[in-house]
Design a protein around this nucleic acid. Sequence first.
DNA 1: GTCTATAATCAGATAGAC
DNA 2: GTCTATCTGATTATAGAC
Lengths: 216, 216
Amino acid sequence: MTTVPSKHRVSHRDKVETAILGEAVRQFAECGYEGTSIATVAERAGLSKQNLMYYFPTKQALYQRVLDNVLDDWLARMASLADPGKDPGDVLRAYVRAKLTFSREQPLASRVYAMEVIGGAKLYADQIRRRVIPLLRADIAVFERWIAEGKIAPVNATHLLFAVWAMTQSYADFAAQMTLVLDREQLQPSDFDDAERLITGMVLAAVGLQENTCPP
Amino acid sequence: MTTVPSKHRVSHRDKVETAILGEAVRQFAECGYEGTSIATVAERAGLSKQNLMYYFPTKQALYQRVLDNVLDDWLARMASLADPGKDPGDVLRAYVRAKLTFSREQPLASRVYAMEVIGGAKLYADQIRRRVIPLLRADIAVFERWIAEGKIAPVNATHLLFAVWAMTQSYADFAAQMTLVLDREQLQPSDFDDAERLITGMVLAAVGLQENTCPP
DNA sequence: GTCTATAATCAGATAGAC
DNA sequence: GTCTATCTGATTATAGAC
């Protein structure tokens, strides 16, 4: 049960767990929870199924750990971006950029989370309630305060956040369709630059911080 | 193999297939392809698993039919909305409304499609290439023509379409998370009204057809 | 078209030697 | 910690009577 304290900086257990989790997030993202077999994950991580189950006693435990890691990473990037004291334009730009960076750097993580939510979040609703919703509500409250102070145009703050979430998230989740439209093997850095420009422009125009005009 | 021509307006086969497909789309949306068992679908549709397999010889055949129906419905709603001769504002409003209506009326269909794309569209990439991409490309071309004619502001038309797609689609796919934020059992008609107002406002502001200003 | 019966396979999980 | 061996249950799919 307990582990002997290791003198190595990175224990063997950590190394093996990292390898397992790296393959697990890939499989869960591609095939979903039920479509993923722990035998496949084990094989690609370079160990036997039985050995994997020494580190993660059940498939659910593995899945929960993957989701926990996804959420940890995401929360670390997104926490306390929205500060009512900062400039609204700066915050909105940073917000879009941070979410888009997550989609670019951790597309598999994004897809695992998306699949869980689409399926109704039956296994993870409680964690979302506890860890995600408060953050989203706080962000919405900041937007609403700016509106009350007349710093941004009076839009529906909740749905504005939904919109930002959706637009940025889709560059991970719907990448397969986007690459078909763009006729590429995979999304390029320049695609993310284009996305950031367009989304930022949309959001700023929506809240009255930027004017997009037609040429006369 | 072949069916005797029926004198009934709706054949027995049609009725049974409709019942099966109705449960199948629900199961595939909730549990994904691998997570769905045809035995469960059959039971909820009121027949035996073996009987279901008389109508759909394999699980894949059932899944393909579900996806085909999803796409048929979506294409019927979205085809030829973007007409370069029409008023850009009217077209964009209609586009947002049509996609949002689909998310409200057919959330399960939307989720099945989303899961397939997130997983890499391994089974359905060809159909998407043949039936979806041309439509999206045509829409993009219309947007670009309006830009060239100076009718809307010069934004990246491709990513504008991605944005509209993402924002509207998310009211089906991410409904589970939205209801947690909004603290509701399920999304209400008023939520879709709010969404339509915000998204339409964002899109029109982005292309310079509407000014959103802060109060002074 | 619907049923009973069953084949064939594969999954997650456990036991125990080393 | 890692291995061999095995259990148990579920799943897709088929065969054939009626």
